[in-house]
């Protein structure tokens, strides 16, 4: 019931809103993510501290508009303990290289 209702509602909504096209960030990666909005969804986890879409409203670093390779390297350094931090060394170890690359790509495309 649950799944069928969901699919049903989705089908109806799709017909009713044929013009609706949500913005999707094209991934620079060759590998297609399972969900077209995966990079956006992953990056949204960072917003609690780094601001919506990576635009910080505090002294915590903005991620919006940063170079993707820089973000990737920082995450790698946090993960390996080369870059000291209070929380990021612990959080960085929760993500795969592919996930970090998706998030970094997403943030690099956001306006500063």
């Amino acid at each position: 019931m649950h799944t069928r209702t969901s699919q049903f509602a989705a089908a109806v909504a799709a017909s009713a809103l044929s013009q609706l096209a949500l913005s999707q960030t094209p991934s620079a990666l060759s590998q297609t993510p399972a969900s077209p909005n995966l990079a956006r969804n992953l990056a949204a986890q960072c917003a609690n501290c780094h601001g919506t879409n990576g635009k910080s409203v505090t002294e915590v670093a903005s991620l919006a508009g940063q170079n993707a390779p820089v973000i990737v390297q920082k995450m790698k350094d946090y993960r390996e303990g080369k870059l000291p931090a209070t929380v990021m060394t612990q959080l960085a170890r929760g993500y795969s290289d592919e996930q970090v690359a998706l998030m970094a790509d997403y943030f690099s495309r956001q306006s500063k």
């Binding site: 989705a10 909504a13 949500l22 399972a34 995966l38 986890q45 929760g94």
Partner: peptide
């Protein structure tokens, strides 16, 4: 769900 898209099968949370 409301637009006929694909629900993310691999959500993450911190």
């Amino acid at each position: 769900l409301l637009t006929g898209g694909v629900v993310n099968p691999t959500p993450m949370a911190t």
